[in-house]
Structure formats: C-alpha cells, structure tokens
C-alpha cells in the first residue's frame, strides 16, 4: 500500500494549474503529478506513490550512504567467516534474482 517507486523525470508539462511529468521506471513511462515536488527538474529521480511524486531523491545523500555501504562490503570480502553458510547463500541468491519492485 505504501509502495513507492523511484523513477527518472524525463519530461515536464503544465496543463491548466497542474504540473505533470513523464517518469521513466525501467522500461515503462508514466505520467505523474508533480504538485508535491515543485523543485523537481528533468533529470532528477523522484519517488512515485499512487500517481504523485512524493520526494525528489537526494543524489548526494544516496552517494554518501552508498559509498559507506560499499566500504562495509569491501571490508567484509576479506573475512571468510560466513562464506559457506547455506541460509546466507540462499538468501543472497534471492537478493541477486530479485525482480519485482515493491
């Protein structure tokens, strides 16, 4: 229900009082209301919920978090402690093949 999906804003237009945008999600493009993200510009990533963008994703914040996480991941590869564990491997397999967006 609170499902919200990130997509790239590729086009904006104004119809009457409504600012709408075309948002690309993987292979699909959808028309989205931009009332709640007046600051969003073409090229930004927005999070979309029931036809409305509810946030503009903060690229710097994402980059910072991701670098931190990648660092954790790199440190870990040197530690084989859990390498052979079956539940872990199975769960990570699920992550690798994860398809649907929820």
């Amino acid at each position: 229900m609170c499902l919200a999906v990130p997509g790239k804003l590729v086009e904006t237009e104004t119809i009457g009082d409504n600012r709408l945008g075309q948002v690309q999600f993987g292979g699909i493009k959808r028309s989205v209301f931009l009332d709640f993200v007046p600051e969003a510009q073409v090229g930004d990533y927005v999070l979309v919920h029931v036809g409305f963008a509810i946030s503009r994703l903060d690229e710097e914040e994402a980059q910072r978090t991701y670098e931190l996480l990648e660092h954790i991941g790199m440190l870990e590869t040197e530690d084989p402690a859990f390498a052979g564990e079956t539940t872990t491997a199975a769960a990570l397999d699920a992550i690798r093949t994860g398809d649907a967006i929820h």
Partner: peptide
C-alpha cells in the same frame, strides 16, 4: 535500475548481516 539495484547488492547485504551478528 538506479536506486534499486545498488540496495540489493548481495556483498553489502552479507556484510551488514555479519555486522549485526557480531
């Protein structure tokens, strides 16, 4: 896809899980 795939990275997931266990 951006903002999705990187948050499904198995190596990072495993590292975090190990961190939690430890």
């Amino acid at each position: 896809m951006r903002y999705i795939d990187e948050y499904r990275d198995p190596k990072i997931a495993q590292a975090l899980a190990d961190q939690i266990r430890a």
